[in-house]
Design a binder for these strands. Structure first.
Lengths: 212, 212
DNA sequence: ACAAAAGTGTTGTTACTACACCCATGG
DNA sequence: CCATGGGTGTAGTAACAACACTTTTGT
């Protein structure tokens, strides 16, 4: 579960109280119930950590199967990438906390690698899909959206060009509203929203496009 | 397991002799052994169908978990995408056969959907990585490579532009050799090879590139 | 009037497509 | 010397990055 908080990409982790990896941080989740879908299981386990309706996007990341990943049992894990928009502050239990992805605490099992794999997936999808909708609030100014992209990507992004790319692709649209910011003046910003709030690939074929 | 055969993208399927889905075609594979990695399990099961050394590329596709996917048991499946280069004709058992992906026979479970998901993954990766190495023979002319790409992508590809894209990206290199073709003359074709025979992403960020 | 914040115009570059043209071989 | 297949040259286009410039507000 990722969210941009305080201008940083953060992941929701749960502090283990018991061995193995007591005191380390692990991804929220748990065992799959009989006759349950993986999605259902994830959402069920997340219910105790965050309100499920706050998860704007969920996608399967992969299945980790190395026998050594669990010191006691032989256990596979299928990880999901979940995104929560900024502006929402889920009420999380005392044993869970948000952690900056670029300075993770000691993690349990292979969960550190899984978190990094999730970040890579997110970074790729930001550039060829509309997945930003799942990190952004319902409406926003371009400066706000730029900060979200910059936090997720890990480098500065130009609001000017970000707008042009996303508008050209038909991903963003203006709401017509305006919003004024600092107390020290400045032109009011246009308010935008994502045209769609479900995943759409906008740049499917970088090359080798089918003949048009 | 995909291979380009007779100018078509084909998948290796196994005809089930017993219920459920008797007579339908299913993906090669089987149950995961205790303490075994998913990769190990796939390769072990493939050994009985094809020579494992012929598999040029293998990557995880996803895990399917719908409880209804198996009529009797509750069973999850993690599918892998495997690629075999053209020119190799694996000795397959009597109950397995190659099938054109665009006209699949009746398939068992959700294997039809899995095959199509694999084809989509392959098509995407062909355009932003060097994964073509796993479909192509060790050396080839551009006309041969174009036919392979066309078969996998499902539409015509220009050999001229294919070469320029792959050479510009540093994916292809000339061997220096030449090969003559038809009995009716024609200029001998240059022989190329892939510079690397393991997966490399060549076009990671379509946009939002990190500042250079 | 000036600073601050946001938006637009413009130019240059790169990567790709399309297509005309040229090259090397066998008959 | 011509048909056949392969390769190169070149022009057009679309998407993007960079940056200067303009607009709109508050003080």
């Amino acid at each position: 579960m990722f969210q941009v908080r305080d201008g940083e990409l953060q992941a929701l982790l749960w502090e283990r109280a018991r061995a193995p990896f007591s005191g380390c941080w692990s991804l929220p989740g748990g065992v799959l119930g009989e006759g349950e879908t993986l999605e259902e299981s994830i959402l069920r386990h997340l219910e105790t950590k965050v309100d499920v309706s706050e998860v704007a996007h969920l996608e399967q990341l992969g299945t980790w199967s190395e026998p050594e990943r669990h010191p006691e049992r032989w256990e596979l894990a299928t990880a999901y990438l979940g995104l929560v928009p900024v502006g929402i502050d889920p009420h999380v239990p005392a044993d869970t906390r948000w952690h900056r992805v670029d300075e993770l605490p000691p993690t349990a099992f292979d969960h550190g690698a899984i978190v990094l794999a999730g970040r890579e997936r997110l970074r790729g999808k930001l550039s060829y899909s509309n997945v930003g909708f799942a990190l952004a609030p319902p409406t926003f100014t371009l400066a706000e959206l730029r900060d979200i992209y910059a936090a997720a990507l890990g480098y500065d992004v130009s609001a000017t060009n970000l707008k042009r790319v996303l508008v050209r692709r038909g991903v963003l649209e203006a709401t017509g509203g305006r919003r004024t910011h600092g107390p020290s003046g400045g032109r009011p910003a246009e308010v935008f929203r994502f045209r769609s709030r479900s995943l759409e690939v906008t740049d499917q074929f970088a090359v080798f496009r089918p003949p048009s």
